[in-house]
C-alpha cells in the first residue's frame, strides 16, 4: 500500500498534492532557498521542486527567506534540511556546514562577480565609482557584496565611506533593476544571474554595462549540516541533486536555469572567497 503510494508520489508533483498530511509531514524534505537567485520565476522554483521531489521520492517544501542570513539561520537551527546557499555563508559556517552539490555552469562549478553600471556611465573601473550610489544584493553574498567590499578593503576603503550611499536589494536581479532604472549608479551582481538575464530579460541587462569581472570563484553550493551528512534523507537528496541531469525533469529544470548539472566539487574551489574574507576582516 505504502509502496504503491510512494510510486504515485514518484510519478509526479500532481499526485504529491493529494498525499495524506501525516505521511507528508514525516517525509517532507525542507529545502531552503534565497531570493538571491531567480526569485522572480515561480515557474522555475515549482519545476525544481517537482524534479527534486521525483528524484527524492518524497515531497519537498521550499523555504524562501529574504536574506542569506535568515536562510542560513534556518539551516543552522535545523528548520530546513538543506539549503542552496552562497559560498560566502558556507565558508562563514564551514565548521558546521558541508557541501551537498555544486552546480556546473558552462562546464565548470565556477562563476564570477560583475561590477555593473548603467550603459551611459563613463566609469571603467571600481575607482571611478567613488562617491556614487551603489547597490549590493546581500551583505552575506559573495558576488553581491564580498567581492567588491574586499576589493575596496585591499585598497584601504570600506564601502560605506567609498560610496556616497550603499543599498541592499536582497536579490541579484534587483541589483540589475536598480542600476538599469537609475536608482543607483553602480551595483555588485552575480555574473551568472546577469548572463542568464541577458537571454531571459535582455531589455533589462541592455541598460547596464559590465565594468569589471572578478576571478572565477566556486558557484553557490547546496549545503547541509555536517552532523546530518550521514542521514539517509540527506544522502538521498545529495544523490537526487547529483543525478538531476539524468532525469528528463531534472534536465528541463537545469536547462531553465541554464546549468549543466550538479557536481560534488572540492571545497577548494571556494579558496578565493576565503582569501577575500580574510582581506576584508583585515581591514576591520
Amino acid at each position: 500500500m505504502q509502496f504503491t503510494r510512494r510510486n504515485l508520489i514518484v510519478s509526479g508533483a500532481a499526485a504529491a498534492i493529494s498525499q495524506p498530511t501525516i505521511l507528508q509531514a514525516r517525509e517532507t524534505f525542507r529545502l531552503g532557498l534565497t531570493p538571491v537567485f531567480l526569485d522572480n520565476d515561480a515557474g522555475v522554483i515549482d519545476r525544481l521542486r517537482a524534479a527534486l521531489s521525483s528524484a527524492l521520492g518524497a515531497s519537498i517544501e521550499l523555504e524562501q527567506r529574504r536574506t542569506y542570513e535568515e536562510v542560513t539561520g534556518l539551516l543552522l537551527e535545523g528548520s530546513v534540511d538543506a539549503a542552496w546557499l552562497c559560498g560566502y555563508p558556507y565558508l562563514q559556517h564551514r565548521q558546521t556546514l558541508s557541501l551537498l552539490a555544486v552546480p556546473v555552469w558552462n562546464g565548470q562549478p565556477l562563476y564570477q562577480s560583475y561590477l555593473i553600471a548603467s550603459t551611459g556611465d563613463q566609469a571603467s573601473r571600481l575607482e571611478d565609482l567613488r562617491g556614487g550610489t551603489h547597490a549590493f544584493s546581500d551583505p552575506d553574498s559573495n558576488s553581491g557584496y564580498l567581492v567588491t567590499a574586499s576589493d575596496l578593503a585591499r585598497v584601504g576603503h570600506r564601502p560605506e565611506e567609498f560610496f556616497g550611499r550603499t543599498i541592499f536589494t536582497y536579490g541579484h536581479r534587483n541589483v540589475v533593476r536598480a542600476v538599469a532604472d537609475g536608482l543607483v549608479r553602480s551595483g555588485s551582481v552575480d555574473g551568472y544571474v546577469w548572463e542568464v538575464l541577458t537571454t531571459e530579460e535582455p531589455e533589462l541587462t541592455q541598460r547596464t554595462r559590465v565594468i569589471s569581472k572578478s576571478e572565477w570563484i566556486g558557484f553557490p553550493p547546496f549545503c547541509a549540516r555536517s552532523n546530518k551528512m550521514n542521514d539517509p534523507r540527506i544522502r538521498q537528496m545529495q544523490t537526487a541533486l547529483l543525478g538531476l541531469s539524468k532525469s528528463q525533469e531534472g534536465q528541463a529544470v537545469l536547462s531553465m536555469l541554464q546549468l549543466d548539472e550538479m557536481t560534488d566539487a572540492d571545497p577548494s574551489i571556494f579558496d578565493g572567497i576565503a582569501l577575500r574574507m580574510r582581506d576584508l576582516a583585515a581591514l576591520r
Binding site: T133, G164, R165, I167, D181, G182, V184
Partner: peptide, 11 residues
C-alpha cells in the same frame, strides 16, 4: 526613492 530616479535622485 522615486519611480523616476533621474527626476528625483536618491538622497
Amino acid at each position: 526613492a522615486a519611480t523616476d530616479p533621474e527626476r528625483a535622485p536618491l538622497d
